[in-house]
């Protein structure tokens, strides 16, 4: 602290040599750096690191909401969940949800980026509008899907019935298989713009001359993409993919709004099942359910950190 007070305005500026200046700068810097970091770190420690540790503790107890007493039960909650059919389905759903959406988001997002990277009239307006699914609150856009998937009022069903393709409205959310496909489609819809914009930013770095030279040399569009474009956008594409896997894995809103994990607990992911369990007051089990996500999240996070560093 004293280091800072010595340089309050109004103090005469002490003339000093060049080395002296840098020596003082370095010495001062480390303490000033921690001082600058302190407010952010305090918030992160109190509301993130501490809850994480506390969550591990809760997950090893039989605590219930509204009851003061709790007993330490070691890993019983985790063990019991392994035999819980709904939890098993939750794990399965999470993988279906991830593998059923991320590849589509990646391919469609790449296509979107390649389309938007061309020069055409009003391209900025299109770019702004096409990002909307990503900007708007998911809970709210999910409401639009809730209606698009409605058993009576769905316009999708209406068109298919009108064209004579089906005779009865589709039961989008009432059937387990339909429900999970419907959730995947809504998730893809929301995620495509994120891939699109991230990859588009990467495409700006592709040198035009190189592309044109390759074209003059007779390289096909496909060859040009792999030889010129892909190496430049590879890293950002991987980063966007890892982010998307993490977010999809830990999703809550979309499923909560559309199915709440139903029908008959068939579409839960970790977040919704944990929330439902909390609602049944079993807070120890609820904490264990959400902590089951941690190992996979940790692996993804380490991978992501490596790619982000690589990009420096």
């Amino acid at each position: 602290m004293s280091i800072i007070t010595t340089e309050q305005p109004g103090q005469p500026v002490v003339p000093h040599t060049r080395e002296n200046f840098f020596v003082r700068l370095v010495r001062r810097e480390s303490s000033l750096a921690w001082l600058f970091l302190a407010p952010a770190l305090i918030i992160l420690v109190v509301f993130m690191a501490y809850p994480f540790g506390y969550g591990i503790y809760i997950s090893t107890t039989d605590a219930m909401v509204g009851f003061a007493g709790k007993n330490f039960v070691w890993l019983e909650n985790y063990q019991r969940l392994l035999d819980d059919p709904i939890f098993r389905k939750t794990v399965r759903n999470t993988f279906i949800y991830g593998f059923g959406t991320v590849p589509f988001k990646l391919v469609l997002g790449l296509a979107l980026a390649l389309v938007l990277n061309q020069t055409f009239r009003f391209s900025r307006v299109f770019r702004a509008f096409l990002l909307l699914p990503w900007i708007v609150p998911t809970a709210i856009s999910s409401l639009a899907f809730l209606m698009l998937y409605n058993g009576v009022l769905s316009p999708v069903s209406w068109v298919l019935v009108d064209w004579g393709i089906i005779s009865d409205n589709i039961n989008f959310l009432g059937d387990p298989v339909n429900a999970i496909v419907s959730l995947c489609v809504a998730n893809i819809w929301r995620g495509v713009p994120f891939f699109g914009i991230s990859i588009l930013a990467g495409l700006q770095a592709v040198p035009d001359e190189l592309n044109e030279a390759a074209a003059l040399d007779g390289a096909s569009v496909w060859q040009r993409f792999w030889a010129v474009t892909w190496p430049v956008i590879r890293n950002i594409t991987l980063i966007a993919t890892l982010f998307s896997i993490i977010w999809t894995f830990a999703d809550f809103q979309l499923i909560y709004v559309l199915t709440k994990g139903g029908p008959a607990n068939s579409t839960h992911v970790f977040g919704t099942y944990s929330y439902q369990t909390l609602g049944q007051t079993f807070i120890g089990d609820a904490a264990a359910i959400s902590l089951y996500m941690f190992p996979i999240l940790a692996v993804l996070a380490v991978m992501l950190l490596r790619y982000v560093r690589h990009d420096d």
Binding site: D251, S290, M293
Partner: peptide, 12 residues
């Protein structure tokens, strides 16, 4: 990278 779904129980 820490999602709210991981922390909402202890945070509550």
């Amino acid at each position: 990278l820490v999602p709210p779904t991981l922390l909402f129980i202890p945070l509550s």
